[in-house]
Simulated assay, not measured.
Amino acid sequence: MTVQRVAGGHPLIVKNIAWHGEDATADFARALASHPAIGRALIELQGDLGAGKTTFVRHLLKSLGVEGRIKSPTYAVVEPYTLPDAGQNGGMNIWHFDFYRFNDPREWEEAGFRDIFAATGLKLVEWPEKAGAHLPQPDLLLRLEVLPDETRAVTLTAHTPTGAELLA
């Protein structure tokens, strides 16, 4: 793990891990879901098609208590969830975005997402680069890469104190 200082003086933390199969992905999602900071985080997921972004999100949402089918927002662009008022994460608002189909970053603004990103809750964003500079800085960035043996090499970058808390 390396620690650098970025604007504002908070640490930029980079950590490299590997997911050797879907069980490892689920284990990481459960660990992340256990942090109280998850309810106020913006998490970006980057990686090629098939890297495991949506699979990770499904495991995370299940770990947080989302019940029922968890759909990919590839066509809808966003899937919202609200946890009931029970347990550690009770009452949490969650939004799962997929900007893969954006052709122009201005589509983010035109879709009216500014209010959602200003609201309290967990935001999970696949293909954030398609929204350009419109997105706020993420608390945590997960960059996934599929290795020849199907292992996922995951680079975790905490850009904020909330992101650092999630990696603790």
Rank of each mutant, 00 (worst) to 15 (best):
M1Q: 07
R5I: 15
A7I: 14
A7N: 07
A7C: 11
G8K: 01
G8S: 01
G8M: 02
G9S: 01
P11I: 13
P11E: 15
I13V: 12
K15P: 07
W19T: 02
H20N: 15
H20Y: 11
G21N: 04
A24W: 13
T25W: 00
A29D: 04
R30M: 05
A31P: 09
A31H: 11
L32H: 01
L32R: 03
S34F: 09
P36K: 09
I38H: 04
G39S: 12
R40I: 11
A41K: 00
A41H: 06
A41E: 03
L45C: 10
L45I: 08
Q46T: 14
Q46S: 15
D48E: 13
L49G: 00
G50S: 11
A51M: 03
G52P: 05
K53E: 03
T55C: 12
T55W: 01
F56A: 02
V57A: 03
R58W: 09
K62P: 07
K62H: 13
S63E: 03
S63W: 01
S63L: 06
S63I: 09
E67D: 10
G68L: 03
I70Y: 02
S72T: 09
P73S: 11
Y75R: 11
E79T: 04
P80I: 00
Y81R: 06
Y81T: 00
T82N: 12
P84H: 08
A86P: 07
A86Q: 14
Q88C: 15
N89V: 09
N89F: 13
G90E: 02
M92Q: 05
M92L: 12
N93S: 15
H96L: 08
F97A: 11
F97M: 12
D98Q: 04
F99E: 00
F102T: 06
N103H: 15
N103P: 13
D104H: 07
D104C: 13
D104S: 08
E109C: 12
E110P: 09
A111Y: 13
A111F: 10
A111C: 14
G112F: 12
D115Y: 05
A119Y: 14
T120A: 13
G121T: 07
L122Q: 08
K123L: 14
E126A: 06
E126W: 05
E126M: 03
E126L: 07
W127G: 04
W127C: 06
P128W: 07
P128C: 02
P128E: 01
E129F: 09
E129M: 14
E129T: 12
K130E: 07
A133R: 15
A133D: 14
L135S: 05
P136E: 08
Q137G: 13
P138C: 11
P138N: 08
L140T: 00
L140M: 09
L141I: 10
L144V: 10
E145S: 11
L147P: 10
L147E: 13
P148V: 10
D149Q: 01
D149Y: 06
D149F: 06
E150V: 12
E150F: 13
R152S: 04
V154Y: 06
T157A: 10
T157Q: 12
A158I: 05
A158C: 04
H159P: 02
T160L: 05
P161E: 14
T162R: 06
T162Y: 05
G163P: 02
G163A: 06
G163E: 00
A164K: 03
A164F: 06
E165G: 10
L166N: 04
L167R: 04
